Simulated scan of single mutants.
Amino acid sequence: MRVVSSVSSAHERLTEVVAVAVEVAAEAGESGTYTGEIARTLTAVVGKIGARIAVDAEVRGFTSGWQEAVRHVSAPGPELDDAQVLRMRPEGDAGP
């Protein structure tokens, strides 16, 4: 399923970003130039890129799920035999 690969890819991308930030921090520490400002900057970079990666993964997951649903609806024949229709009750309705 594409959603899983999308999430896996996002996880790998974020892991790479964090690894690079840690590498930069380690190099700054070794050279004696690591400061609170560098820490805040690296944290902000990881946060911003992480947010973009998460949004991208959500959009790709939604898009692939939507495309899969459209294929199922438009496909004639037995492909729909295993489909389930779930109806949501209005809030407060304690029906069966």
Rank of each mutant, 00 (worst) to 15 (best):
V46K: 12
A57M: 12
V46S: 15
V24N: 03
A94E: 11
V59S: 06
E58P: 03
T43Y: 06
Q84H: 15
V18I: 11
R87Y: 13
A83Q: 10
E16G: 09
S64R: 02
E58Y: 05
V85I: 15
A21L: 04
A26S: 10
G47Y: 14
V3R: 04
V18L: 07
I38Q: 00
R89T: 14
A19Y: 08
A21T: 02
E91S: 12
G65E: 02
G65M: 04
L42I: 05
S74A: 15
V24A: 05
G95S: 15
A28G: 07
Y34S: 05
R87W: 15
K48T: 12
K48M: 15
S9A: 10
G32C: 09
P96N: 03
T33V: 13
G61F: 01
T15F: 01
A75C: 10
D56F: 00
I38H: 03
L86S: 14
A44P: 09
A44F: 08
Q84C: 11
A94W: 09
T41I: 11
G29Q: 06
S9K: 08
S8A: 07
G65W: 00
V20C: 00
A94C: 08
V46P: 11
Q84K: 12
H11K: 03
V73E: 12
E16F: 03
T43K: 10
L86E: 12
A28I: 12
A51H: 07
V70H: 05
D93T: 12
V22D: 13
D81T: 04
H11T: 00
L86Q: 10
D93L: 01
G95R: 09
G50M: 12
A51I: 01
V3G: 01
E79M: 06
A94V: 04
V55G: 09
S64E: 13
S8P: 03
D93E: 09
V4F: 11
S9V: 05
T35W: 01
H72V: 04
E16T: 15
